[in-house]
């Protein structure tokens, strides 16, 4: 049976309980390929059941809900299967399984969470803000994983009272911070009127980027390894 759910933690936990005992269960929150003869069901979130499952998992492993949250942010096509296998193992062992790296399910989950964590860390560095006429900062990006609200707290702590918007162009949503609170809102497209100095600072940054390079020592492969080309689109130094 294929269990379609909406990708939230609660729906995952509801589906997990429904699929208990179904060894053939497939979880899907994105598009899934249906094969002949396969039946599917659309899971409707049952808040009470989800809460129960959450308590149970937390009693096995205090970090389990954080891990689930991270896995469900992944943009990997396999993430539903990875999360299901990991939580089935956790339910079976009834104690933290994080260290069991000899197990395939644990390694897959570890890898999946590591990717999300790595991308958050990368965007702490690769995000580029532009200053709008009102003084608010605006940064567009298109990450592999759904992380716009997970990168925002770092910038709230750092930027003091500055209001800012981190816009996930691909998922058409944004993390908005008024200087204190962060909320997520759908955002199709943003028109930003730039501040008077903005283009000059951008051009100074490009000058800096060009000057600090040592041209005779070109190692493009290494550069692309650290900073994948798919991220370049939103980087000021390449625009």
């Amino acid at each position: 049976m294929i269990y379609f759910y909406d990708g939230t933690k609660e729906a995952f936990l509801t589906a997990f309980l429904l699929a208990w005992g179904d060894r053939e269960a497939v979880f899907a929150s994105q598009n899934a390929q249906l094969s002949l003869g396969q039946t599917c069901t659309f899971v409707r979130t049952d808040a009470a059941a989800a809460k129960r499952a959450e308590q149970r998992f937390l009693s096995f492993d205090k970090e389990s809900m954080r891990d689930l949250g991270t896995m469900l942010r992944s943009g990997d096509a396999n993430r539903d299967a990875v999360a299901l296998a990991y939580f089935r193992l956790l339910a079976e062992k009834k104690r933290p399984v994080r260290g069991m790296l000899a197990d395939d399910a644990v390694r897959a989950a570890d890898e999946c969470m590591r990717r999300v964590g790595l991308e958050i860390h990368r965007f702490h560095g690769f995000l580029r803000f532009m200053e709008s006429a009102s003084g608010a900062l605006y940064a567009p990006f298109s990450p592999d994983n759904d992380i716009c609200d997970l990168v925002a707290p770092h910038f709230r702590a750092r930027l003091g009272g500055y209001p800012f918007v981190i816009h996930d162009v691909k998922r058409k949503k944004a993390a908005v911070c008024d200087g204190k609170t962060i909320f997520v809102a759908p955002l199709e497209r943003a028109e930003v009127a730039l501040s008077a100095d903005e283009t000059e600072w951008q051009s100074l940054w490009k000058t800096y980027y060009a000057s600090v390079n040592i041209p005779s020592r070109e190692r493009l492969k290494q550069m692309r390894g650290y900073m994948p080309v798919r991220y370049w689109k939103h980087l000021t130094e390449f625009r």
């Binding site: 860390h121 560095g125 690769f126 702590a157 750092r158 980027y209 600090v212 390079n213 650290y226 900073m227």
Partner: peptide, 25 residues
């Protein structure tokens, strides 16, 4: 950050990479 702009990042953070493969932090 004590009421201004900026804070430390204990693990360090790279912001860009130049064509010579070095990081700009």
């Amino acid at each position: 950050n004590e009421g201004g702009i900026g804070n430390g990042y204990a693990s360090g953070c790279c912001h860009s990479f130049t064509p010579d493969g070095r990081c700009i932090s």
